[in-house]
Design a protein around this nucleic acid. Structure first.
Lengths: 245, 245
DNA sequence: CGGCCGCTTGACTAGTCTCAATCAGTGTGG
DNA sequence: CCACACTGATTGAGACTAGTCAAGCGGCCG
């Protein structure tokens, strides 16, 4: 069976990682993501407490969900990579319970709920979007396990493995290398560690010959060993056979 | 405005915490949850790796989602209290990425995907179910913040506040007391702590006059102070005005 | 009555955090 | 083109939270 060539649109590409689409559906997705706007690094797209205004779709760059504590501590709860979408049903709630910000300059589309509803009239797209929601939730569970149950170095290793797979699914890796526009502080707020300890743990991964990481460029030198260390299994991302290759 | 008397069916009651239902919708929900089966404490309802067979609805008792590491460590990723439902779209995935087990004897309904689809033909129910999914995800984010960003004692305090609100929403509290059929080991696997440290932290909460907890019976003695300690805000549960009272 | 599970407590250890200083890279204005 | 400022990375020292190991206790069930 021959699949169509992977689309250059990461939204199309992500959904096609979950389900097969008709040409019509591919076109509908491409049209819905046709006119992105550029957002600078360090921008807040939405803030906790605001009422949600549309659904954000990331086409380029990297963004993240987070929550703040009163003492200023920030917990990052998700990364949004190209093709990723905010909660499709977010219009149902009165106010956001978390914020979304950008790590790097991004190309972002803000889709209205009506647009989302229109897209969901296509059966394939509807299934793909719901798969996306399931995977978001599964990823949160895995992050919870990561922070609750793994050691510092395992946590980082697992995170790096996950990002690798997710970027690979939308064609944004060069073999085992990828762009990771995060500071060590960002990694710390993701994994529930201090920045200093992230630094030391990264050093250990480097000394072990597992990775290099400088200038926001992540290079995995020994993927099998990194996965073994992290006990990484990609099943929770539900990429299925289509992307297994 | 007078609302109808709260239903004794926790499923109906939970959905009505999110949206207004018509009599017809209430009836449909009640019918779908009409014939539960009894499941003993310590049963696995579903295991990671299996293909999902229907959607589980808890009507009585308490269950939990969890993931296991190779070394045997267990991370609990969610509590399922009466009225709670597994992922409604779970039929879309090929195999479970986590397991579900019971803390106590439970009354459980296994609904087929067709039943779920039929329920979703009612607009109000569809909205309520999607709200439930949003709240599940928001709760996971809060748990991640809890484990990643709070101290041991704050974590436990926050968890106890959350369970109180959720049980209250389905009428299962007696003022600030409720049934919590968990061992200290269960709490440890929920919060990413050791059992010993859970014990010491609970002791501290007791010594501070904040709670009593014995024989699976949790009594919050000083709710305002417990919430202050945990920095607890219930906004992420999106119970809205209907249940705010 | 015995066994087992869950809770409690003590002693010691270890992983991680905090504080602090230094260094490197980038961008800016003079 | 250079001095300066700022952000982010690195490293050291010491403190502390939480984990591990171990023993004892109490209640419940068969």
């Amino acid at each position: 069976m021959t699949n169509p060539a992977p689309s250059s649109n990461p939204f199309v590409r992500k959904i096609e990682g979950f389900v097969s689409l008709t040409d019509e559906e591919r076109t509908a997705l491409a049209e819905a993501s046709a006119s992105p706007r550029t957002v600078k690094a360090g921008t807040m797209l939405v803030e906790e407490g605001q009422s949600p205004r549309g659904v954000h779709l990331i086409l380029e760059g990297m963004a993240y969900r987070y929550k703040l504590r009163a003492n200023g501590r920030r917990q990052i709860t998700a990364y949004l990579v190209p093709g990723d979408l905010g909660d499709i049903d977010v219009a149902l709630i009165g106010e956001m319970d978390h914020s979304i910000g950008t790590f790097s300059d991004c190309q972002v589309v803000r889709m209205s709920s009506e647009t989302v509803l229109r897209l969901q009239e296509h059966a394939g797209i509807a299934r793909g979007l719901r798969m996306g929601t399931l995977v978001d939730e599964a990823t949160l569970r895995e992050w919870l396990l990561n922070v609750g149950g793994r050691s510092a170095i395992e946590r980082l290793a697992h995170l790096l493995c996950e990002v690798h797979v997710r970027l690979d699914a939308v064609g944004l890796t060069k073999d085992t290398a990828y762009d990771l526009p995060l500071t060590q502080t960002d990694l710390a707020d993701t994994t529930g560690m201090s920045q200093v300890h992230v630094n030391r743990s990264l050093m250990e991964l480097r000394r072990g010959g597992l990775i290099t990481f400088r200038q926001r460029s992540m290079q995995i030198l020994n993927l099998p060993e990194l996965r073994r260390l992290a006990e990484f299994k990609a099943n929770y991302l539900h990429l299925g056979v289509r992307s297994a290759a």
